[in-house]
Design a binder for these strands. Structure first.
Length: 116
RNA sequence: UCAGGGUGAGCGGGCAAUUACUCUUUCUAAGUUUAGGCUUAAAAGGGGAGGAAAGUCCGGACUUCACUAAAAAUGGUAGUGGGUAACGCCCACCGGGCCGUUUCGGUUAAAGUCGUGCGGUCAAGGGACAGUGCCACAGAGACAAUACUAAUCCUGGAUUUUAUAACAGGAAAAAAGGUGAAAAGAAGCUGGGUGUUUCGCAAGGAGCUACCGGUUUCGCUCCUCAGCAAUGAGGAUAGCGUGGUAAACCCUACCAGAAGCAAGAGCAAACUUUCUUUUAACUCUCGGGUUAUGAGAAAUGACAAGUGGCUCGCAUGAGCUUAUUAGUAAUAAUAAGCCUAGAUAAAUGAUUGCCUAGAACAGAAUCCGGCUUAUAGCUGCUCUGAUAAC
RNA sequence: GGAGAGGUCGCAUAGUGGUCGAUUGCGCUCGCUUGGAAAGCGGGUAAGGUGAAAGCCUUCGAGGGUUCAAAUCCCUCUCUCUCCG
């Protein structure tokens, strides 16, 4: 679980990310990123019942993605909102494959801090 | 002891270390307030998903709206008695269906079959003389219904007499054929017996069967006894009670006002769309500019529509554990002890070691009582079979 | 979280308990028409298996039940869709 200040809580934040965000899509997960004003990073995860009807499976995927975010939190530059969209293709993938996809997405969105 | 089935009564991975999240208690610091207190941050301690949290199939609590009561309408429930806040749930009993059985009896050469006992299991189990509807096809006729065939009688045919056919009309008749799931009883066993098939050289044997009887069981009527009752047991008479469907309308008895925590109460006044104004920067068209279009950002005001924020509701309850008492049981009463999730884009994760192994079904969202469905493995109870010992 | 609606040929839809392997349209296919096509007209096929056919068994999301008889009536599951601040 992420800290309170790193979560997206408002509906309009999600709407704004969908309308104006830069995007990255792979087969199993999509990422939308948009600049915010707070100089903090916020994250939100969307996973609906079309992925799976069972709440246990949806919760587990959500936790796996959260864990990946936590591992990358230090490396990411501040000041953006990120929204993750999960697609049904994710079923059957293990956590290494998901991690590869998500980190590839961060790279494409130029989210990492520049190494001096 | 092993194997398999049933039930669902108990459990539903454990221990240790580091770290992340949520609620809460204590203490410290800062801000604010006259004070109580409130807000923010840090530290230490404690709590942190289920038996189904699921399906939303029933029943309640609670909230708002409506409202004299009752009745009507609409919907639901249905053996009898009890339990419960209530129920379509649970318990006990009654009757029924199905399965098993070397309990016993009738019958048989046997297989089988009928009754009965025991065990298991299933089920929404009031009323069809209050009324209405429906019962396809077939059939004469599907309910106080009917005359198709064969058979019987009468008239016409039919005349001088006698006999009389086909055919036409009428009467009476349910004993027969035929139809169907069902047609004013149903079923099993059996004796005699007619016909027929088959085996045999024959005597004779075996199978099926028109018809006439015997006996048993169920249904119908009456009496006695048992039971609160549903109903059961025994006896007697007659040889026969006029079908099915109410998970069709309906009748009888009983129950129900409607909507649902996204209910609802309070605080604060925000955001979006639309209209108006301004600014610089970006993208597309282009060699470049102007213009135009789209999107974004900021400010001001308007009031219309829409969307959203915070607090409460919201965790002490028909609560849990143990003991005793009442009761066949469901359950109830009394006493003692205990406090046991409360999030809001939504908390249990990650890494590692050991046990015994990458453990089944599966994630609270206002809260309870049930039902239904999913479920690896372990324990308990129970049934069946095998083996060994006594 | 709560409240509802539906599931029938490849697709979209009909179907009072009985004559139902089940209607109609778009498809597909054969024939007529045309110089050739389209359109039109007529026939067949298409909802499972087997079979030369007749027929037999099975069948309307799945499983039970009521009834002489169920796509239809009742119950329990399953899948799809819609609405509610």
């Amino acid at each position: 679980m992420l800290k309170q200040e790193n979560r997206i809580g408002l509906n309009k934040d999600f709407d704004r990310a969908f309308k104006a965000g830069q995007s990255f899509y792979s087969k199993i997960v999509g990422i939308k990123a948009v600049i915010n004003q707070d100089n903090k990073n916020r994250f939100g995860i969307l996973i609906n019942t079309k992925v799976s009807k069972k709440a246990v499976i949806r919760n587990r995927i959500r936790r796996q993605i959260r864990e990946i975010i936590k591992q990358n939190l230090d490396k990411i530059e501040l000041g953006r909102n990120y929204v993750f969209i999960v697609f049904p293709e994710i079923l059957g993938k293990n956590s290494l494959e998901i991690k590869e996809n998500v980190e590839n997405g961060f790279k494409k969105l130029k989210a990492y801090k520049k190494i001096k």
